[in-house]
């Protein structure tokens, strides 16, 4: 099995990941290791640098007793000489038992999976999907809120190019939730994604940051998405102490990190802020994914 997209991922798989992640939490916390993937090798192919995600996968594999090979700078590999991704995959599958790929082009993980005889995990393909991030986000919510059904979400930021929010929305479609979407006018959630999930969950586009959410999920708005710097400036939003005080007492605030200005640093010490916990949960969740996929 591969993990390419959150779209069409089964509820059973999500449940299996959560169950397994729970058992790995102690190992991750105590920074020890188990033998579950001893003798197995993970190849991390990062065609686009992402220190955080790569470290998280490497740590997860080491905690499972496995080895890691890979690259994080495509400029030093044959990829920069124009080698096709399909060729690289056919070589790498000879050295490893599972591939994690991050690539700037959409569909790259799906293509890698097609040429690979070993499992492929998508760690972000352009603006398309980032399913492991969404799984750790959802896991964080289930751990911090003790439930997912019945919650109201506010998802804010660049919803057009934000692969994490695309994956998250598909996962949320498995639960009884309400989702409010807040984005700059030029960066809305793609309509086809809304169409695909809105039959199953309530989705509402909102024009301000709403305080009635149980989970506030903030994402970056990147300057390079705006041809006009003035447009960019007008599209910025910020979750500050004032807004946070208006939230429910048990509401939580999340962010896939790195953040720019979406969450003011003064919010960090508020008990509702859970983005550093969220980041920690990445290790047990990725351990669970690796151990479920690698046979």
């Amino acid at each position: 099995m591969d993990l390419i997209t959150a779209r069409g991922l089964s509820k059973d798989f999500i449940d299996d990941v959560f169950k397994k992640a729970k058992t790995y939490e102690t190992v991750a916390k105590k920074k020890t290791a188990v033998d579950d993937l001893r003798g197995k090798t993970l190849a991390t192919l990062f065609y686009e640098p992402s220190t955080r995600t790569q470290l998280s996968f490497q740590t997860a594999m080491h905690r499972l007793g496995g080895d890691v090979i890979g690259f994080s700078d495509p400029k030093t590999t044959s990829a920069s000489k124009g080698e096709r991704l399909s060729d690289t995959i056919r070589v790498v599958e000879g050295y490893s038992d599972v591939i994690v790929i991050r690539h700037p082009l959409e569909g790259s993980a799906a293509l890698a999976a097609e040429y690979s005889s070993i499992p492929v995990i998508n760690a972000g393909d352009g603006s398309n999907q980032h399913p492991t991030q969404a799984l750790m986000d959802l896991y964080t919510i289930s751990r911090e809120k003790k439930k997912i059904d019945g919650l109201t979400f506010l998802i804010a930021g660049d919803l057009k190019y934000g692969r994490t929010v695309h994956s998250l929305l598909y996962l949320l479609a498995h639960y009884k939730v309400k989702v409010m979407l807040y984005s700059p006018p030029s960066l809305p959630m793609p309509q086809w994604i809304v169409d695909e999930v809105s039959g199953r969950i309530e989705v509402e586009v909102v024009d301000r940051l709403r305080e009635d959410a149980d989970v506030v999920y903030a994402t970056r708005v990147q300057e390079e998405r705006f041809p006009d710097p003035e447009e960019y400036r007008k599209s910025l939003y910020q979750i500050d102490a004032d807004f946070v005080e208006k939230l429910k007492e048990d509401a939580i605030i999340m962010h896939p990190l790195p953040r720019v200005k979406e969450i003011s640093p003064e919010v960090d010490k508020n008990p509702r802020a859970k983005y550093f916990e969220q980041s920690f949960y990445g290790v047990p969740v990725r351990m669970a994914i690796l151990s479920l996929l690698v046979k």
Binding site: R84, L85, L105, E106, G107, A110, D125
Partner: peptide
């Protein structure tokens, strides 16, 4: 695929 940022154009499929 009409998406210029889709991997398929680089791979010719």
């Amino acid at each position: 695929c009409p998406n210029p940022n889709c991997i398929t154009s680089a791979e010719g499929i």
